[in-house]
Nucleic acid binder design. Sequence first.
DNA 1: ATGAAAGCGCTAACAG
DNA 2: CTGTTAGCGCTTTCAT
Lengths: 379, 379
Amino acid sequence: MLLQMLVLTHCNRLHTLPSEAAFCNRAAADPPGGSRLLKARSNIKDVARRVGVHPSTVSRVLNPATRSMVSEALAKDILRIAAELGYRRNPLASGLRTRKTFTVGIIIPDLTNPVFPPIVRGAERTLDAQGYIAILADSGSRERSEGEIIENMRARDVDGLILATAKRRDPVVDACVEEGIPLVLVNRTVSQHNVAAVINDDELGIELALAHLIALGHREVAYIGGPQSTSTGYVRYHAFMQSAKQSGLTIDQQLLVNATAFTEPAGAQALDQLFATRKPFTAVLTANDLLALGCYDALKAHGLRCPEDISVTGFNDMPFVDRFDPPLTTLHIPHDELGVQAARLLLEQIENPGTPLKQLRLEPRLIVRGSTSRPAGLT
Amino acid sequence: MLLQMLVLTHCNRLHTLPSEAAFCNRAAADPPGGSRLLKARSNIKDVARRVGVHPSTVSRVLNPATRSMVSEALAKDILRIAAELGYRRNPLASGLRTRKTFTVGIIIPDLTNPVFPPIVRGAERTLDAQGYIAILADSGSRERSEGEIIENMRARDVDGLILATAKRRDPVVDACVEEGIPLVLVNRTVSQHNVAAVINDDELGIELALAHLIALGHREVAYIGGPQSTSTGYVRYHAFMQSAKQSGLTIDQQLLVNATAFTEPAGAQALDQLFATRKPFTAVLTANDLLALGCYDALKAHGLRCPEDISVTGFNDMPFVDRFDPPLTTLHIPHDELGVQAARLLLEQIENPGTPLKQLRLEPRLIVRGSTSRPAGLT
DNA sequence: ATGAAAGCGCTAACAG
DNA sequence: CTGTTAGCGCTTTCAT
């Protein structure tokens, strides 16, 4: 890793370019004084002095809620001077006093899983619009436990938390609920109902996918799900059985496999397991795009084609699945909107502590592409 | 958008599931007292009282740098009580005093561009390991200008900034340098050298890609680059011309196109433009995977096959480009490591203000896949 | 309507 | 070594 890093301590590249030419490692042109100083930000006291009033008066003006306590004229003066001085309130200082930091923590399990960036983006955008900032932590990429991350965030007086990491039984979530921290789960949720959450309507998604396969003529449909410790894994599994039953399909338990992780290898392995049963099936409904990709691999390994021999459906509609070979039929989840709504729910909890906790389910949309077709028998 | 959101105010789904059964919108089971209180965190004063010493003594013990000022025995007592009380230092309060918040801002242009998540992840992980937290802002998804974002972060006393948004001429970067904020650019850089940066070695990348095409037998190679306002667009363009010249290829300026954006449509349009010249070429070297994907589209539209008719190379090695049709030959950039090193450089600047600014270039690696082959003429 | 004073939690300069 | 005092920037009683 470090081997492939190079610090150019002198220009050693032969071809030099117009402007980036001498891209060498070197100190910046030092300013006259040596190290340069940070321009001191003006504070409430500076403004007060300039206007000739007491700092608390300035504070009152700067806070919309207390502005009315100060006379129109003075307020205008203060505002003008404040602008002139480029004054910006220090939210840390005011937060110290008010216990409100306009900061929320977002914890996700893995930012490189394409599901999460749009959620984070949607949430961050929404928070920003209300003057909040987001502290981001990727719990999967570090030593420290999720509990420690939250402890750290709490120590920083975050106003609330958005968690995309929930297990179905989750002591961390329980602890947050217990302590009464404003909290919203997103993407995944827990078994209990005493916590706000924004998730996808998984039952509907499974229903749509299965209906699609049945409409194509499939009758023997296998299922590859995910870890039962997550709500997505659990709910989709049960939804599949439910939907199959309602559709009059006979369910062969051997054709139902829950992979140990939402990953490509796990998906491939699960499909191998299905093949090992020697039970016939013409389609595989998977609970996740990566599992579906794993199926692509296993099919290829078995010399089978998709969709001619076996149809495959995914779940999530990750970016670029439309460019795969074959393009993947899957369920589109409005991930950005998931993030937006999670942020909304959280802000509501923060600014309006009394309101009842809500759980939202957003509707997925079936996207039919090239990985599903009529089963081989029918033409 | 909102249409596809539904709040289940009563259970209206027919099939109910084992445990998530009654996933309805409802208030949480209220705790006895009505709204629950936050458990008050204990502070330095609480600890001091319990031990029977002055708060400042506790402070000294809790700070590793000043621990030695206090007697062993007392220190141990204090530490024990602190642990007992579950004490955690409030970094905001101490930051108010010390002007050090252990917070850094990370600004990226678009989190849904697969290039950035691994960078953020690498940086965040590295910062976390040193006790820092990351404030994340996605400058592309919001109204507020990047300048305002930075203003906001500075108001919160961030210790430094990581920017992935730099233009080649960037007033925002200039302003940061001017004010002396610890700053590291990542992925893209500016023309000047007075700012720390961690970027990919673009010249090398282009060189590798072109050498690969030449080795395959290509002699007429077209180039599709990106916006010249970014260092990546600019450097890769010039590197291509340089490499081509050094390889003895004759450069036809008409076969060099810089797309207006690093996007698929822009790539498709650029290739159309190349076709419009009616000049012959057997391969297209692009400066970005998305541009390469655009080429796939344009080729298909023109009834041409890749790589049989035209070879295509990308740049970045985004996730899943190995699953495209055809799998994309491209340059792998160690994005995670880019983030890690950016964080390292920043921490160095923060904790060691004197050290000279460094610029690092990490080496890309050519990944040969299915989108390149010998030109049609040769067999 | 405004000023004075106290304090959020913590640290740092100064005593002793 | 430890306690005292003051203050980071801001808000919020309490006076006036």
